[in-house]
């Protein structure tokens, strides 16, 4: 009995030793030479491999940072999810200056909720915006608006996007959003835009992408931008941030000072703001005839 146990132990021990030797030799022989700094920088990065930096995952970004540091300048590289804090830490590690990235957030440019743009048809297919986009214009008839199947929610690596069942639209959680841009790529209608969070989180944007004629746009959605130009008129006197093209206004976020004066003048409530906009001035009666 003892002999059997002893024998088993010896045989298994020998087998283990042989395999360990093989593994050791292979590990040494085929070891990949890697700059130790890459590993250390990777540690400093968020480690979520989102690709928002433009490199394949965090190790890719770390390798790029090490390369750039050897060249003496890393200011052109940025890690959007890590934010300024991460970049500062990496800058200290290399002893180099880092660029100052503006804090940004993903913004949905559609206000076509169930209430504002009621459904006129019923979609019968896979729950995928990409498939629905190829199927038809949308349940509410708007060929530019949100399809509501939540491809953005699925693709967001940070759980920052949730579909609101009441409005049928996605909502972005500013705290969780890292501007990685996954939703921008996933949305078949290109409804997301990465915009600066703005001073004190104040930002204003046109909540619509519809370039159809005003009549056609209003047919499907009560909050569609009809390109009337009232907002532009308002803004022209302040910072000239608004342009209008193809029946659709656009607010240049670099020029916009988030005064919010354009919000109340919009006849279709197509301008969204993250704050309570100023009350319209009694001058409203003057602007209206000018627009028509």
């Amino acid at each position: 009995m003892t002999q059997t146990i002893l024998f088993s132990v010896l045989v298994l021990g020998a087998v283990a030793a042989i395999f360990a030797t093989i593994l050791y030799v292979i590990a040494k022989k085929f070891a990949v030479e890697e700059d130790p700094r890459v590993g250390e920088v990777t540690e400093m990065l968020p480690g979520i491999n989102c690709g928002a930096c433009g490199f394949p995952g965090c190790p890719g970004m770390a390798a790029a940072l090490v390369d750039a540091a050897d060249g003496g300048d890393i200011s052109h590289l940025n890690c959007p999810p890590g934010g300024q804090e991460t970049m500062t830490r990496i800058g200290e590690y290399f002893g180099l200056e880092v660029g100052s990235a503006k804090e940004t957030v993903a913004v949905l440019r559609c206000g076509g909720s169930c209430e504002k743009a009621p459904a006129k048809a019923s979609y019968d297919g896979p729950r995928s915006c990409a498939v629905a986009h190829g199927t038809f214009a949308g349940e509410n008839g708007c060929a530019f608006g949100c399809l509501g199947h939540g491809d953005c929610e699925v693709v967001c690596p940070f759980d920052a996007i949730t579909m609101n069942p009441d409005t049928g639209l996605p909502e972005v959680d500013q705290e969780k959003c890292t501007s990685c841009g996954a939703c921008v790529d996933a949305c078949p209608r290109n409804l997301f835009e990465i915009r600066p969070v703005g001073r004190r989180d104040r930002r204003v944007w046109i909540n619509c992408r519809n370039t159809e004629s005003p009549v056609a746009a209003k047919k499907n959605c009560s909050v569609a931008c009809i390109g009337c130009g009232l907002c532009k008129k308002t803004c022209d006197g302040i910072v000239q941030a608004i342009t209008i093209e193809n029946n659709l206004a656009y607010i240049d976020h670099d020029k916009c000072i988030a005064c919010g004066k354009c919000v109340p003048v919009c006849p279709t409530n197509a301008i969204a703001a993250t704050f309570e906009p100023p009350k319209p001035k009694p001058k409203k009666t003057e602007t209206e005839p000018a627009a028509t």
Binding site: A119, K120, A121, S122, Y123, D124, G125, T135, F136
Partner: peptide, 11 residues
Amino acid sequence: QATGRSLVVAL
């Protein structure tokens, strides 16, 4: 209004 009802859409 043109169709009078909500129709099903599928590929």
